[in-house]
Design a binder for these strands. Sequence first.
DNA 1: TTATTGGGAGTGAACGTTCATTCTCATTTT
DNA 2: AAAATGAGAATGAACGTTCACTCCCAATAA
Lengths: 208, 208
Amino acid sequence: MLETKAQRQSDRRAEILDAAERCFARAGFHRASMQDICGEAAMSPGNLYRYFPSKEALIAGICERNRAEAVASFALVDQAPEFFEGLAGLARHHLVDRTQDEVALCSEIMAESRRHPDIARLYQDIEKDIRDRIAGMLKQAAGRDEIRQDLDLDAAASVLMLLGDGMSWRRSVDPSFDAEKVLPLILAMVRGLLAKPDDDAPVRGERS
Amino acid sequence: MLETKAQRQSDRRAEILDAAERCFARAGFHRASMQDICGEAAMSPGNLYRYFPSKEALIAGICERNRAEAVASFALVDQAPEFFEGLAGLARHHLVDRTQDEVALCSEIMAESRRHPDIARLYQDIEKDIRDRIAGMLKQAAGRDEIRQDLDLDAAASVLMLLGDGMSWRRSVDPSFDAEKVLPLILAMVRGLLAKPDDDAPVRGERS
DNA sequence: TTATTGGGAGTGAACGTTCATTCTCATTTT
DNA sequence: AAAATGAGAATGAACGTTCACTCCCAATAA
């Protein structure tokens, strides 16, 4: 009974975040007014404010949800039988399979983090988390001798994040951009960067 | 005499754009108020509006200036004795030498183009211009047999733009990001993507 | 030379609007 | 009855923009 109450609260919060996501993806943080979000969530402002204390809290809530999702997705790499295959799966999941709205929202968060100090902190926290996971992933691969040993893991992690940002950004800004078409080139490039020099052979192939 | 008048007008406009750039880079388009810009330009609102009809016109003006600068920078590649050297120079010029403010401003324009339809048109126009130039650059290199022939030039251009976006974005969002350190890896990757298979040898070297 | 005129440069208070947030009150649940 | 949930009008601050006005200086008229 007291279980259900907390559950209801949590559900309502999730609904509100869903509505906010739609509004933000459509119009951006600044142009999406609380009234819009209230409309989308079929709820009055007064009531909405009982669930989230501010607009910023909505953004933070969305960030947290995304973070949980992003972190979970790293399991893909661990489960894969071979490093590059796992990496390819991760890349596809993050950069191709996401909907346009999800990508747009991601850009929106990135852009907003440049402005709102609190969001910036939250975002950089998430970034650090992801970065650590990438670094860990690379380290593990190096330990298994699946990638070259003479690699600046830190710089390599930067490159991977940079590629992710670039893909996301291009998708959200250029409607004609075809992620599906570009991904193989990206993966080939990354393989060239990370793979051990002697098994460069399948460098152009997307799958073994 | 009538020459000087137009000149003065133009100078004043440039000063205003400089001030606006500083404000936008610092606070973003939405949080930089016209009052802020007026303060930065040491000018009253009424007077500023004699030079630019709206806030949006300021953004457009900045876009145009950047476009001119970006387009001009492609001469770097044409002048270089060898393709990859020119490309490296271009990359350095665009991605490392730029000040933090310039990069931030660039991100701001990209983000804003997702919202303001007029800015979006202008931005996509510029993007198309740059993209064409990259494609032309690649085509010329292919003609000179400096890069591999079996290359999807369109996709390759996308990859290059994506890398540029990623670098800009990372710089503007992550203060600890070291573009200088990452650039060699990026260039090596790009070389791996574009170079003819038989001269892969200096793939790890930054300069011949 | 001095006085008059004209117009562009510049000012800053004021306006109308939008927006996040709060207040008050009604309805439902416990 | 008391508490939780909900609605929606009200509030006040911030913003882009406008407007009535002043200042300055060059050209003309006296």
